[in-house]
Design a protein around this nucleic acid. Structure first.
Lengths: 141, 141
DNA sequence: AATGCATTTGATAACCATTCGCAAAAAGAG
DNA sequence: CTCTTTTTGCGAATGGTTATCAAATGCATT
C-alpha cells in the first residue's frame, strides 16, 4: 500500500477529529482498515500495518482498535468461534452473511427486518439501541 | 435443587439417547440447565452443578457443555463482551433481546424475519443454515 | 527550533476463559 | 466380577486480549 502525503493528511484529520493524537501507527492502521475489503482480525491487521509501518506492535493494534471502536470509527464483530474481526464504520448500518465453509463475509441490510425488530421490541416495552444479525450460510449448489 | 430418582431417570434417558455414557456429573449439569430460566455462563453452571454434585470440576462442565452442544441439547451464545452463556435447546428456535442495562435476556421469534432472511440469502446464492440475531435494548420509560 | 508536559508506544508480563494431557475412576457390556 | 472404553479431576497449557512501565513521541507554547 502506498501512503501519499495527501492520504496521510486525510487520515490524520480523521484521527484528530476523534480527539486523539495523530501517530504514525494510527495513520497506518486506519489506512489499512479503510482499504480492507474483508473483515480482518487483529493479527491480520498487525501484519498489514507492519508492512507500511514496521515499528508498530500488536499491543498498539489492539489499543488503537479499541480507541477507534469507542469513537465509532470501526466496528468489532465476534463471529462464530473466531477471534474478533474489524471493519471501518460506514455510514449505513449493515448485517452479515458468513459463509460457513470459507469464512467469507458479505454485507446486507434490510429495512423491513429492522422495522420488524423495532415492532417486536416495542411490544415487549423496549427500544432497540443496536442489534446484531448474522446469517451462517452455505452456497447453493 | 432436588433430584428425585424419577427426574434422574428422565435425564439419564436424554443423555443416553445422545449416544454418550450417563455420569453423575452430566445428569447434574443437565438438571441445572433444564431448570435455568436465565442464560448462565460456564462458571455459574459450575457453581450450581457443584451444589448438587460436589465432585464436578470446571473442566467437566466445559467438556459436557461442548458435548451437549454438539448433540444439539444446549445452545451456546456469545453476547457482547461476556463469556459464553448457555441454554437448553427448546423445540422452537428463538432469538434474543438483551437488556443493555441489566443484562437480562428475553426470547422471541419471528417467522416473518426468518422468511426475509431466507429471501435475502437466496438472492445472493446462499442457503441459511442457522443465524444469530440479538437486539440490544433499553426499557422504554 | 527548542522546551515541557501529556499522551502514546514497544516489549513483555499478566489475564482469563477455555482446552489439553494424563493417570486414576467410573460406566457399561459380557 | 472382569474387561475395555469412556469419562473424570487436577493442574498445566493455550490463545486472544489487556495491563505495566520506562522510553519515545506529539504538539502547544515559546
Amino acid at each position: 500500500m502506498d501512503l501519499s502525503s495527501d492520504k496521510i493528511l486525510k487520515l490524520s484529520a480523521s484521527i484528530r477529529n476523534t480527539g486523539v493524537r495523530v501517530t504514525r501507527q494510527r495513520v497506518a492502521l486506519l489506512a489499512v482498515l479503510r482499504e480492507a475489503a474483508d473483515h480482518p482480525d487483529a493479527e491480520e491487521l498487525y501484519r498489514r500495518t507492519k508492512a507500511i509501518e514496521p515499528s508498530v506492535s500488536i499491543a498498539t493494534i489492539y489499543r488503537s482498535l479499541a480507541l477507534f471502536e469507542e469513537r465509532g470509527v470501526v466496528h468489532r464483530h465476534r463471529f462464530k468461534g473466531d477471534s474478533a474481526r474489524y471493519e471501518t464504520a460506514s455510514a449505513e448500518h449493515h448485517d452479515h452473511i458468513v459463509d460457513i465453509d470459507t469464512g467469507d463475509v458479505l454485507e446486507f441490510n434490510s429495512d423491513k427486518i429492522e422495522q420488524l425488530q423495532n415492532e417486536i421490541a416495542a411490544e415487549l416495552g423496549y427500544d432497540v439501541i443496536h442489534h446484531r444479525m448474522e446469517l451462517y450460510c452455505r452456497k447453493v449448489k
